[in-house]
């Protein structure tokens, strides 16, 4: 299978097979006008099978938050058909409105429109805790 190469854009590679749609939704890619290709079950030497997302635009989106979902993902930034950056997303120090606090005693359960914020408290693990009540994210 061939997808047109990108002039300016972002290729999210080495996504665990089957996780591509989750990342597509997580990044809210349905909301953008640009072409986006979600390719699943691509044969991979390293992984057996993998998913890839190609975005035909240099969108200003926070890709580091992907580190929370899967730190093994590779992000490639393409400018004028040349790859200018290649990196793994780092574990974000904070993640906002991605997961919800499950503690029934947490202020997030009653205070309206309060963002659900988790902070990285232990890189080995990794462990994220609710900013407000410090309950561990599951």
């Amino acid at each position: 299978m061939n997808i047109d190469s990108i002039t300016n854009g972002i290729v999210i590679d080495h996504i665990k097979a089957g996780k591509g749609m989750e990342i597509y939704k997580f990044l809210g890619l349905d909301a953008y006008e640009c072409s986006v290709a979600l390719i699943k079950n691509v044969p991979s030497k390293k992984m057996g099978k993998k998913d890839i997302i190609k975005i035909d635009s240099l969108l200003d989106i926070d890709l580091n938050a992907l580190g929370y979902i899967d730190p093994n993902i590779t992000i490639n930034v393409i400018k004028n058909e040349v790859r200018t950056e290649k990196y793994h997303p780092e574990l974000p120090e904070r993640i906002t409105n991605i997961i919800k606090c499950k503690n029934p005693r947490c202020i997030t359960t009653t205070e309206q429109e309060l963002p659900h914020i988790f902070k990285l408290t232990d890189k080995n693990g990794p462990v994220y805790r609710c900013l407000y009540c410090e309950t561990k994210a599951q």
Binding site: R105, I107, E111, C130, L131, Y132, C133
Partner: peptide
């Protein structure tokens, strides 16, 4: 406040210092 984290939320909005006098079992 009975809810954990309520004084922290308060401190984000307050114009004056907040002292947490106990937030639930937190």
């Amino acid at each position: 406040h009975p809810k954990e984290g309520a004084p922290m939320v308060a401190s984000f909005k307050s114009e004056v210092p907040i002292i947490n006098a106990g937030d639930g079992g937190h």
